[in-house]
Design a binder for these strands. Structure first.
Lengths: 217, 217
DNA sequence: AAAATAAGTTAGGTAAGTCTAATATAATTT
DNA sequence: AAATTATATTAGACTTACCTAACTTATTTT
């Protein structure tokens, strides 16, 4: 069983190591957590004793298999709670992260799985980040912006990059939300705008700026 | 802003003082939290400095107005989360308390109120304990068992005392759940059984034992 | 009333997780 | 290559929230 602090270190190492593969420097961890490098080293020693990371002097930290699955579970909980806060409690995109930072540390065997089921097994959180499944596996599709989708192809909106009121209002007007299907009909080279079909029935034309703010899979 | 530990002390004092009115002894707090009396005194000093309780040597601790509203908010969050876990995540009555002990410490301005709204402003938690409203006010009806209700009176089920599978199955058969309206038609003195009307349309007869396991308002 | 028990208090100590300051080592710049 | 800068490490200290042990003050019991 890990403390809150240990979990935050594991999460940080996981993120900095690009999915747990590479080694992470003391400084990088210190910067990401806002802690002093000396404190980081203390913790790296403890995590090594617990066999959650491997760490030798001067060579950076790397997650063990055990540490990796622990980190994935924390990330899973964080992102599921973000979905809950956004979808069920109507929190804004901006607010969910801070609260999920606390909720991710709640410990109970089946909690993540039950929450997952309750939310309908979402694959992406409100920021468009992928949610690991119960086995720690990430959805394989990588997210792109709508502007990267080729003409004729269909995709599904998983998140938005812009969270301004203006943008969200515009989204509503266009009938676009998380989960909406969008087909790219044509890319207009004249002004880089994009002709799209929303939910198989509603044509629109959107600007380049707009297309770059929509994350899709 | 309080630490987890401070919040647990406030909650403990609140409960031991019967809604925050009387003074609470060091030993009572120590027993309820499983801590050493010496530790309790350390914390009482800290809470006094923070003006959350008043405490003088040998005379026990009492919540200030500030401490009382803080304690009520913690209780509110605890019980709302219990409702969430039971109603939305299908946790059993037995499991919710332990998880809510963690969730009650999650801090964010509107969280309790948003959760309250999402759950439909419940008045009682799965154990039948009353949930303080946004202003810290408790629902005024006090809960009783069905067996205490007089003939001819109508009441609403807020919780059950027995959580065995057998009992819960039987409840389902009778179409009784949280929120169900039950009218007491007659109390049979022969065997202390109770004739009831469920949801204004379904007559049943239940045993004394059953009536004592249903909490109503 | 004296002895025994219970409750409250003080003093000093520990572990977790942080810090600062000093030092060592590695990487860059000149 | 030497000097500078960046990073890593160690040592020692602080805070929180606990603890034990010893002592004091009440309250019971005999």
């Amino acid at each position: 069983m890990q403390t809150h602090s240990e979990e935050n270190y594991l999460k940080s190492i996981f993120k900095l190591s690009k999915l747990g593969n590479s080694k992470v420097s003391v400084k990088a961890i210190a910067d990401s957590l806002g802690n002093n490098p000396a404190s980081v080293i203390d913790m790296l020693k403890k995590l090594t004793d617990k066999k959650l990371i491997s760490y030798e002097k001067k060579s950076g930290a790397q997650l063990t298999n055990n540490g990796l699955s622990t980190a994935l579970l924390i990330v899973r909980k964080h992102r599921l709670w973000e979905v809950f806060l956004k979808e069920k409690l109507d929190y804004s995109w901006a607010e969910v992260h801070e609260i999920a930072e606390q909720l991710e540390h709640i410990k109970h065997n089946e909690l993540a799985d039950r929450l997952d089921k309750f939310l309908g097994f979402p694959e992406y959180d409100p920021h468009g980040d992928p949610i690991p499944d119960a086995k720690g596996k990430l959805p394989n599709a990588s997210k792109m912006t709508l502007s990267e989708i080729g003409a004729g192809k269909e995709c599904r909106v998983v998140a938005v990059k812009d969270t301004s009121v203006d943008f969200l209002k515009y989204l509503q007007q266009l009938n676009i939300g998380i989960g909406t299907t969008v087909k790219v009909l044509e890319k207009i080279s004249f002004d880089d705008s994009v002709a799209i079909m929303v939910n198989q029935n509603e044509k629109s034309s959107v600007s380049k700026k707009f297309a770059e703010s929509l994350l899709v899979v």
